[in-house]
Design a binder for these strands. Structure first.
Lengths: 164, 164
DNA sequence: TTGGAATGTCAACAAGGCTGACATATTGTG
DNA sequence: CACAATATGTCAGCCTTGTTGACATTCCAA
């Protein structure tokens, strides 16, 4: 077959593929470790983090929109939102044009918690990127986007465009 | 500052870092989608998948070792293992040298389920790698390893070496 | 105007984490 | 040998976060 070219090097053993899957598993755990620890001290969980994260990313978003992004049932999300609203981290305003809708915003306290959780993750991510170098980061991003299915990619790119 | 060099290009805005975190979230969901669907049809969950996966990776592993890899309590793992043993997917043999230990193995049925779940993920991973190309894959692996904390990396590399 | 669709809330249940307490069997040590 | 430490399993009970079902409110279109 001669020297391996770009395409030929793409022949990967099951073992190499398995390692990639395991790497995703362990790395994802590494990324959620610190926020989980912070949340555990205040009777919140990862679900609260996700809600806070995406409300911060798209202030004024509706419950339905959040449901689509998170991929859970409205009942499940509602429970989380209720506690966040009760605790004064999220504000729910009745929609102006369609009163069935609720527009969600972070309060000052909500923004503060978001920043705290986000800082923890970003600090780690920044260190990760620094250690791996810019070319590795470009590859990382490329593989992750290829890994999403069409639906996830749509959600991802929509958020990205909104926060250009 | 002149032309950006490799290191200077590593200055990344919060927005870029955030996108990396979101990409991990959506990609991870993409990777677990299909196994989750399969498991849901048989009253199993992700916890069962993880146990099956790592028993397959390290046949004969002890309960304690599995606990360390998964990072859960023995009560939590035991509940999962008990159902898997009852259902004839996992076999628990009393240790030969230390009879307090239990060595865990997949039965034929367990191996079959592992293969089914694994195939789904590997097929997706293979397509992902093909789409992204070999250089991107190298970067992907590099970033993921940098993302793990020391403990995760130890678990990860131990498994990798065992299955060289 | 009225029936269906969209939106959100409440109630109840299950999976799978957790802690604490305790039993059992085995091993290693003084 | 006696006893402490280790490995595993189990029971009870808690929490978070997913699920389904039922229902109220609001909007819109026939």
């Amino acid at each position: 077959m001669g020297e391996p070219t770009g395409n030929e090097r793409l022949f990967l053993t099951d073992e190499q593929i398995r390692q990639g899957i395991e790497a995703m598993y362990f790395a994802y755990r590494g990324l959620t470790n610190e926020p989980d620890r912070i949340l555990a001290t205040m009777a919140y969980g990862r679900a609260h983090h996700r809600a806070i994260h995406f409300i911060n990313r798209a202030p004024g978003t509706t419950v339905t929109n959040l449901l689509e992004i998170l991929g859970v049932t409205k009942q499940s999300l509602n429970r989380v939102l209720r506690t966040l609203i009760e605790d004064g981290l999220v504000e729910s305003r009745v929609g102006k044009v369609d009163k069935r809708e609720r527009n969600l915003f972070l309060t000052e306290a909500g923004t503060a918690l978001e920043a705290r959780l986000s800082d923890a993750q970003r600090t780690r991510m920044r260190a990760t990127y620094r250690d791996a170098g810019p070319e590795a980061v470009a590859g990382f991003r490329k593989v992750l986007e290829a890994m999403m299915d069409a639906e996830m990619r749509r959600k991802y790119t929509t958020l990205r465009e909104t926060n250009s």
